[in-house]
Simulated scan of single mutants.
Amino acid sequence: MGARELRTLVEGGSFFEGPRWHEGRWWVSDFYTHSVRTVDPETGADAVVLEVPGQPSGLGWLPDGSLLVSSMTDHRLLRRTPDGDVHVHADVTEHCGGHLNDLIVDGEGRAYAGNFGFDLMNLAAPEPTSLVRVDPDGTVHREGGDLWFPNAMMISGDTLIVAETFGGGLSAFTIAADGSLTDQRVWGQIAPRVEPGSVEEMLPNLGYAPDGCTLDAEGHVWAADGLGGPLCRIAPGGDIVDEIELPEDLAVFACQLGGDDGRTLLMCAAPDFLEVNRRDAREAALLTTTVEVPAA
């Protein structure tokens, strides 16, 4: 527990997010170089596949192979077709209380996306928000509510799990036949919820701030801690059953299981998450390690 060899795969990013394993490569967004990149899992060689002026975040793929990307600051989902054409798949501005954030796409091509709910980088007062569902034809629907900074999402069967970074845990929904989300409930409470207040009041008391997450074959979740703590494996209910210690100068803000056998854990690491510190620096890294339980 905690004692695993870490390998540095890539260095020199601004702030990596939205890691995915797809078609034998890693895919990541790099916030402040405004780029979506692919990364060779052996050599770390990377290539830009899409530039996103509005700052890229979540990534997913439609059944036809098109790439969907969250464009954070202008609240749009961009669609890059297999032949390289890029257009706006949906504008979800009316449902965003802050930057558009992570997303996931289900097997029917429905995209689910979260948003900050408030202006985090300028330390505005946190507010609850909702998810949005974007159907394959681009129509937009509000889903759920009272979510405190909905972040990474995972799908297991007919269940969607979402990390609440300012809620100290993960919530779950049942996905209905039409894609709507029902039966909102707690999946796992890692740390007690704190009373709403300012960012300065809430952050020191969160205990755990689940950020980027990935689901394994035993139904457990590896969850980054946005407060800079160890990367932890969370059991249903919220108990921490494993953790990975990190170098003193880095914290992990997102992770993903992948590799040919699904046992490689990719970690998006940086000294902190603050835009004022990350925008012009090139100190972010992609780290990997091997875990026992493969990806779901």
Rank of each mutant, 00 (worst) to 15 (best):
R37C: 09
G168S: 05
D83L: 10
P294K: 05
V291E: 05
D83C: 07
V276D: 08
R142K: 14
D146A: 14
L286S: 02
T288W: 01
V28P: 02
L67Y: 06
L206Q: 11
Q256I: 02
E108G: 13
A90V: 09
A47N: 13
L78D: 06
G2Q: 09
G258F: 02
H220E: 15
S14D: 06
L274W: 15
E275V: 15
T159C: 05
L160E: 04
T38L: 12
P136S: 10
A90L: 09
D225S: 13
R185Q: 06
G197F: 06
A284K: 03
D183A: 13
V291C: 02
L266R: 01
A113P: 06
T159V: 15
Y112I: 10
A285E: 14
R4T: 08
T214R: 12
A3Y: 12
S57N: 14
V39D: 04
G97Q: 09
P247W: 01
G197W: 04
L246I: 04
S29G: 13
V52K: 04
P247R: 06
H141Q: 08
Q256F: 01
M202L: 07
P271S: 10
T81W: 14
L286I: 03
M153R: 03
G207V: 05
G97A: 11
S35L: 01
A172M: 08
G219H: 06
E11K: 14
H220M: 14
E218P: 00
I104R: 14
R142E: 05
V186N: 10
T214L: 04
L287W: 06
E195T: 10
D239E: 14
R7N: 06
G109R: 07
Q184K: 13
D211K: 00
E5N: 12
V276P: 01
N101M: 11
E245D: 15
M267L: 15
L68K: 03
H75L: 07
L231W: 03
I175A: 03
D239I: 00
L274T: 12
A296V: 04
M153G: 05
T214P: 10
E42A: 14
L286R: 02
D261V: 11
A124Y: 13
L203P: 02
W21L: 09
L266Q: 05
F15Y: 15
N122I: 12
A217I: 08
L250P: 01
G237H: 07
V49G: 08
R80Y: 10
